[in-house]
C-alpha cells in the first residue's frame, strides 16, 4: 500500500509536476477551443456552400466529408505534421493538432448542419420569398436560426467526442496535459504525474459527458 502510494500518488513529485502539467492543461483547453471554432465554422460554411447546388463544389465538399469522417484522427495528424513538410508546409504541433481535429469536426458538423437545413419544410423558403425576402436574407433570418437549433445537440455531442482527441497531440510532441506529464514522468521515473494528468482530463471531460447525457435524454423525450 505504502509502495502504491509512493508510486502513483507521490505528493512531492505531483507538486513538482504541477506547474508544467497545468501549463499543459492550458494548452489542452486552447487546442479544444481552436478545434471547436475551426470545426463548427468550417462545417457550417461547407453546409451553406452546398445549398446553391454547384456540381463541382458539391463533389469536393462530399469528398472532404467522406475523407475526414473515415480516416482515423491520428493518421490525419501524423500526415499533416510529418508529410506536409515535404511539400514545404511546416506546421507547429499546435497548428497541426488543431487543424487535424478541426477538419474531422468540420466533416461531422457539415453533415449534421446539412441534415438540419434539409429537415425544414420547403414552405419556409417559399413563404419567405412571397414576403419579399431574398435568398440570403431568408437563410440568415428564417432558415439558419431554426436549423442551428435543430443541429445543436448533435453537434455538441460530436464536439465532445472530437475534443477528446486533443491528447493525440503528444504524437507530434505537443506540450499539452499528457505531453507535459509524460516528460515529467521520464525525468522522475515515477508515474504520479500521469495520475495528475488523468485527474485533469477527468475534471475536464466528466462535466461534458454529463452534458451529453442530459442532451440525449432531452432528445429522446422530445
Amino acid at each position: 500500500m505504502e509502495e502504491l502510494y509512493a508510486n502513483y500518488f507521490n505528493m512531492t513529485i505531483i507538486a513538482g509536476a504541477l506547474p508544467s502539467v497545468l501549463r499543459g492543461f492550458l494548452v489542452t483547453v486552447e487546442v479544444a477551443l481552436a478545434v471547436i471554432v475551426i470545426g463548427v465554422a468550417l462545417g457550417l460554411g461547407l453546409a451553406l456552400l452546398r445549398l446553391p447546388g454547384w456540381k463541382l463544389v458539391n463533389g469536393l465538399i462530399t469528398a472532404w466529408i467522406e475523407l475526414f469522417r473515415t480516416l482515423p484522427q491520428l493518421v490525419i495528424l501524423i500526415f499533416l505534421y510529418f508529410a506536409l513538410p515535404y511539400a514545404g508546409i511546416r506546421l507547429s504541433p499546435f497548428a497541426a493538432t488543431a487543424l487535424a481535429l478541426g477538419a474531422v469536426l468540420s466533416a461531422f458538423a457539415a453533415e449534421i448542419f446539412t441534415a438540419a437545413i434539409m429537415a425544414l419544410p420547403k414552405g419556409q423558403w417559399e413563404a419567405a420569398q412571397s414576403l419579399g425576402f431574398g435568398p440570403v436574407r431568408t437563410l440568415r433570418m428564417i432558415i439558419l436560426p431554426q436549423s442551428v437549433r435543430l443541429a445543436t445537440p448533435l453537434v455538441t455531442n460530436r464536439i465532445i467526442a472530437v475534443t477528446k482527441g486533443s491528447a493525440l497531440g503528444v504524437a507530434v510532441s505537443l506540450n499539452d496535459t499528457l505531453g507535459a506529464a509524460q516528460s515529467y514522468m521520464s525525468i522522475t521515473a515515477n508515474p504520479s504525474p500521469l495520475m495528475l494528468a488523468a485527474a485533469l482530463y477527468l475534471a475536464f471531460f466528466i462535466p461534458l459527458v454529463a452534458l451529453s447525457r442530459a442532451i440525449e435524454r432531452r432528445m429522446t423525450l422530445s
Binding site: N7, G165, S166, L194, A197, A198, Y201, F205
Partner: peptide
C-alpha cells in the same frame, strides 16, 4: 460508464502502459 467514457482513449492507454510496470 461515464467514468470510462470520460477518459480520452490515449490517456487511458498511456496510464496503463507506463504505470503498470511500477506495480
Amino acid at each position: 460508464i461515464d467514468l470510462l467514457r470520460s477518459f480520452p482513449a490515449l490517456v487511458l492507454l498511456v496510464v496503463i502502459y507506463y504505470s503498470l510496470p511500477a506495480l
